[in-house]
Amino acid sequence: MKKNKAMIFWFSLPSLLCLLIMFVYPVCRTVLMSFFKVESVTAGLSDWGFNGIGNYTKIFGSQTFRTAMGNMLLIWLVGGVITLLLAMLMAVVITSGIRGKKFFRAAIYMPNIISAVALATMWIQYIFNYDYGLLNEMAKLFGGDKIKWLGSDMKFWSMVAAFIFGSVGYYMLIYISGIEGIPLDFFEAATLDGAGKVKQFTKITLPLLKGVIKTSITFWSINATTFFLWTKMFSPIDTEESTIVPVVYLYDTVFGGKGVVTRDAGAGAAVGVVLTLIIIIVYEITEKLFKSDDLEY
């Protein structure tokens, strides 16, 4: 087949332009901006003053940012362990030969395809509602006391619980596809050798899912680091200490929010760079920890 140079050029040019405009140039400029004193996000290069690592020392010196990082870490670790364990549990149940497998799989994944704003609203306005919410109605049924799920001491964990509910389905799908990739005769041979279900899971399924688990940890890390929407929904008007996360801190510092006296785009850029570095580091660590041997079967 002849190579049509003009066609190759015109066919690939638009996507190249998108890549440059939407990704390459902005990423470079954000990294650069994180080392400069930039007040307004729209300020031209001539208004930038070199600041060394000043922006980084500023954000790490800020109590709010440290709180935000702490919350993010909790979401990543506690939320991650619960989400991935639940997802694994669901995946194992669904591949165990139950009836209505397709229905259950579709129903559990469903929260992932609907608008997260709508999903968060359902949780805030119904499940966690103090007066008529599901949880307090259940408490009443069992003779317990009503709880202020959205009070400042409970809010963070309520938010994490709702976020977990919305996430489990996605990781479940990843695990299901991993489990279904394992040949059935592995399990048949193990059954013949007298290995129980639990033993089969720990000795066959888990080791062979190494690659899939690695992928799921990477995806979870990206989701936890870029956590934003749920905080915005749980404290919609003013950012609160209890639910703040780094991206909300970034949003407030760059675009203005409660308690932000002077906007600081440079500091915002530094937050972006820090979060991206965290994602890269977590990725590298999981790659090392779960060195997959690229098994062929």
Partner: peptide
């Protein structure tokens, strides 16, 4: 073709670039 491989790798990387890394310059533009 020249640059084809680079474009492909660039697109793969762009898929996992967090939106917070691009939002400020885009806003400025």
């Amino acid at each position: 073709f020249t640059g084809g491989r680079t474009l492909r790798i660039g697109l793969v990387i762009a898929m996992s670039v967090p939106i917070i890394m691009v939002i400020m310059p885009i806003y400025s533009i």
